[in-house]
Design a binder for these strands. Structure first.
Lengths: 130, 130
DNA sequence: TTGACGTTACTACTAGGGTAGTATTACCTC
DNA sequence: GAGGTAATACTACCCTAGTAGTAACGTCAA
């Protein structure tokens, strides 16, 4: 199935997906996607159009015709994609151990006191649910 | 530079890198790599050899001749690669926020009580160092 | 009715990961 | 020295992301 390799999403494809997920009505025409992405870098209009068509072939998005424009909407849920990419990442680098991953990042990266407090709270709540 | 896109490492390449990093002397012949990887899947000997040559071209590994065999060793450090892949991951999915990333994974995934306790300890220690 | 414009379709190319067969080389043994 | 063996070198695929030019088409306005 097309969805089985959702964890292999290129940077541009992911940007597009995030953009569509963000939309209130989850729909956007090619021109809108192109417009919205123009702050992030330079892409030709046709690049976006081609990318969207390829993404549709992969089952990532769908389109419908409206006013002679293609309105694209996500065909996969954000949670699913985030989940699969994360799983792939944790598997690759930390043999699937979420604990190892967090432990590693926590010891090798900058993080503010506020963030740490937030995480403490989160962990405390998480413990209650076990 | 070759190292600039180290965060884009294929699965096989990463497996090979991890294998080399693990080695006590950080060196392995093609046959050894092939052997070590044979539990994980099926790869032809020549696939591994080709991959290693490509990786050398990318600056990921180096080799020296010994006993008519190529002994490969990493040319990039594990910490650097782990760091760059992680950064790329966090940037892509969580706009660069480590806190958001951990918060998200913590609330959407399975984790044991022991792991949570471990993380609490880690966070406490981390706070002391700020 | 013609031409400009906006849109999608088609086509083509580059790069890199993955995959592996075939050719070559060099040594080692009988 | 002939043949086998183990190693690398070379070559050639496929696939997908990214990139974008050009063609075709349909509508609307002058």
């Amino acid at each position: 199935m097309a969805k089985s390799k959702v964890y292999r999403l290129g940077d541009l494809q992911l940007k597009i997906m995030k953009l569509l997920w963000q939309r209130a009505d989850s729909e956007a025409a090619v021109a809108e996607v192109h417009q919205a992405l123009s702050g992030e870098g330079e892409w030709a209009y046709t690049t976006i159009a081609t990318m969207l068509r390829k993404m549709e072939a992969r089952g990532l998005v769908r389109h419908r015709l409206h006013d002679r424009k293609f309105l694209y909407r996500p065909a996969v849920r954000a949670e699913e994609v985030t989940r699969k990419i994360s799983t792939h990442f944790i598997d690759r680098l930390f043999e699937g151990s979420l604990g190892d991953m967090i432990a590693h990042l926590l010891t090798t990266r900058q993080i503010s006191r506020e963030e740490l407090v937030r995480l403490e709270t989160l962990i405390a709540e998480r413990k209650k649910k076990l």
